[in-house]
């Protein structure tokens, strides 16, 4: 793909990539870090994008891999100091009307990594099972079982009420 076509395609994907990153990691600054790393990697590896592969799935996969790399790096740094992910659970000062939002973000952060990324791709980003399985490089059956477990866990954490905000 010519470089400018690729830049154009990535540019229009930026809002969605930021949303995906935000679902993976709660801190907005960390989320943009992931997108930035992903953009840099994508441009550096543009020659690895096959002509018939979609840029969308490719970019989601790069964001997701950047997130995994970051988690590993953090775990290494934090191993002797604090339990992994402790930082992701610190209380948020927002209250009142933001309580529901807080609950959703808390719940997402408590999902195991594999369920969180599957839920983010399918329920939030609206990818098909096939597309999401491709991004995560797992069989569709694996994907659907992760989504099912992720959904159950979220419903348990968020309560049984079916209200929509």
């Amino acid at each position: 793909m010519p470089p400018d076509d690729l830049i154009g395609e990535i540019a229009v994907l930026l809002p969605r990539l930021r949303r995906f990153a935000r679902a993976l990691t709660r801190d907005p600054h960390d989320a943009d870090d992931l997108v930035q790393v992903a953009v840099e990697r994508a441009l550096a590896r543009a020659n690895q994008l096959l002509a018939d592969a979609g840029v969308t799935g490719w970019m989601y996969a790069i964001v997701r891999n950047a997130w995994i790399d970051e988690r590993r790096a953090r775990a290494r740094r934090a191993r002797v100091l604090v339990p992994e992910e402790l930082g992701e659970h610190v209380a948020d000062p927002r209250q009142g009307s933001a309580a529901d939002a807080l609950a959703i973000e808390d719940a997402m952060q408590r999902l195991p990594q594999e369920q969180r990324e599957a839920v983010a791709l399918v329920l939030i980003e609206g990818l098909s099972y096939k597309e999401a399985a491709h991004v995560l490089d797992v069989p569709i059956g694996t994907l659907t079982s992760r989504i099912a477990r992720g959904r159950s866990a979220l419903q348990e954490m968020l309560g049984e009420d079916s209200r929509t905000p």
């Binding site: 830049i7 990535i10 540019a11 930026l14 809002p15 969605r16 930021r18 949303r19 935000r22 679902a23 943009d32 997108v35 930035q36 953009v39 840099e40 441009l43 529901d100 939002a101 959703i104 973000e105 997402m108 839920v119 329920l123 939030i124 609206g126 979220l154 968020l158 209200r163 929509t164 905000p165």
Partner: peptide, 23 residues
């Protein structure tokens, strides 16, 4: 719906200049 509604506002946030710089 609840998850989508929660994350939807991110789509209309301004794109940080550093991401455009990276592009």
């Amino acid at each position: 719906t609840r998850l989508q509604d929660h994350f939807k506002p991110v789509l209309s946030e301004p794109i940080p200049p550093r991401l455009l710089d990276a592009l």
